[in-house]
Design a protein around this nucleic acid. Structure first.
Lengths: 196, 196, 196, 196
DNA sequence: TATGAATGAGGCTTCATTCAT
DNA sequence: GATGAATGAAGCCTCATTCAT
């Protein structure tokens, strides 16, 4: 009995995953707006109606994907020990970690920038991978400014926005250079630009 | 007769402008995706069918708006005398001019970032205000690098992309600071970051 | 030109009528809930999308049909001269007129009783052919009570409700007797029942 | 063993009752059409599939509820001794009893009037609480006519229909008067109206 | 018997596009 | 050239019903 329930539960979980994966693939291939729920479910090999057993809307799928991504970033970052480092080193490392995870889920960031546009219910989609995605950067930056490691004549949230902007737009880059390397170079410029 | 044709031409031109203005207003108010052609033409006070006498699609309207914007920027920049300036001064001034024009047409940049997502025909919408918007910056930057005024260990197109990214994402900024000032600060960091 | 506009306007009006007629027919044949918009438009020989050029919802169609019916009733009643009559005669005549019109649009009354149930937006559908349908009866009855022609130990609005109920339920009658005669007999009982 | 079966039978009966109660509650709260089977079973705290172990359709649930109601009415009426009464007294008492029971299950009458509209299978839902609900009244009335207690110039089934109509529409009444009192007044008028 | 995930038909609605006037 | 009614494809979503566990 317990086993039966376990099986059912496992299957249910699997279906959810299948849908998420299919959605990610379709979003990447066709964009968020051009991906219909029917298309997702077709890619998932499931009936259309099944979608609504797991999600209320396409937006919810996107949010879920984003939340998963954010968790991955956090895991990755906390895995890299971050003690006894200068704010420069810390920021650099965090940026590299973030770049790595995003690189593997490149499709999602662009989606997020624009998703607010699409939906009838724009309030449901935050402009960035919020909440809390940018806060990490802002914290590091603020601390660096307090320590005198970063210039203080520019507000920390402006710098943080700049970091953000680098990720968001680099995802679209057509330059013949790897995503992570691209990010690395831009962050290097930024770091040099915020020395006191 | 020539006058009659002129009148007609002018009238035709007027309708086109009316549509463009209405579209800009509606895009700004409701977003690109949520703006139907019917809505545009209603705002324009013209019949739906008339739209197709001037444009083939919503995408074309957007492109036209972007092209107009770019022209404005160019006019503005060339108005500011640009001789005998260091690359730093030149880049700073160009960025300020661009910020000013974009500030007055703020809605269009966000639209552009996301429009590719929306359309059935994404190939029709370039990712940025291309063609040629970024080239101006790239030219200045490359020249600066050749003169040894800018660091050369980072490719010029990467730097150019960074400039671009600043405009694109600042248009979304929720910080309590004016758009132009926000841009100015970020460009300042960038400029300091690309000193040799 | 004026003629062209006239033609267009006329055609538009015709389409609206066509839809109303088709809807009435389908409502009668299959009931309100079982009549899809697609079915109506198929019966009307028009495309589905055309429906929304004229009505926002099925409910609006129903309301329109009801409003038309009410107008017919009023025309019919005012056609019958109503001066110098006892309240008994007046009520009897009004009831007969109403019965006649309703008889020709029998399907609509049942629809109205139940339509509130159906809709997601029940507030949009009044329970009776309001506003003003019942008021006519209530006015006559109140006047009759004041003159002492009708019993006063029962509130007028109760009597009015009774009149209403007769119409509403007789529309469903399966008895082998004509609608108008059925109504006539019930009203006769009611009239005898409200003598002082 | 016999006990085990008894227990099982009782359990089965319990589930059925649970569903009926939940359905009644949901019908009352949301209306027949807006109540999905899933909603009923959720309110019942049972699985969706379980529904089909007891009922073939929502319509069958409604019919069952109606049949139960009718039985209640009969019990109530037979409880009130009905010997040696004039037809007037008898009809009055029966109407009062019926009103009392219906008052406690007010939701069901409106449902019934409209249920025929809703269903794909209208033939499955009779227009009134048939079969047999009205027969009781018809019998009393016919008897009263034969005895010369009621007027005979109006067919008995017409009068019976009138009684019916009073119940059906009073369930919707918005007047500021209790259901039972409302019914009592209307029946009083009717009784006065059918004196010979 | 109880379950509830899976299903797909079917309803509603929007909207780019056409075409007769 | 201007118009706007007509169109139908396409998307979203609900829900009765089935069936494997």
């Amino acid at each position: 009995m317990a086993e039966a329930i376990g099986l059912r539960t496992r299957k249910k979980f699997q279906a959810r995953q299948t849908i998420l994966n299919a959605a990610a693939k379709m979003f990447e291939a066709h964009g968020f707006a051009n991906t219909s729920i029917a298309l997702i479910m077709q890619a998932a090999g499931l009936g259309v109606g099944t979608f609504y057993n797991y999600f209320a809307s396409k937006e919810e799928v996107l949010l879920t994907l984003a939340r998963n991504l954010r968790e991955e970033v956090e895991v990755e970052i906390s895995a890299a020990g971050t003690v006894n480092q200068s704010s420069f080193e810390l920021l650099e490392r965090c940026c590299a970690c973030t770049a790595k995870v995003i690189d593997e889920n490149r499709f999602i960031l662009p989606l997020f920038i624009s998703a607010g546009e699409h939906s009838d219910k724009p309030e449901q989609i935050p402009r960035s991978l919020s909440p809390g995605f940018g806060e990490m950067f802002e914290e590091i930056i603020t601390r660096g400014q307090l320590c005198g490691e970063f210039r203080a004549d520019v507000p920390g949230n402006i710098i943080s926005e700049m970091v953000h902007s680098i990720y968001q737009t680099t995802a679209f880059s057509k330059l013949n250079i790897s995503f992570q390397e691209n990010i690395r170079l831009k962050i290097k410029i930024l770091l040099d630009g915020i020395r006191p």
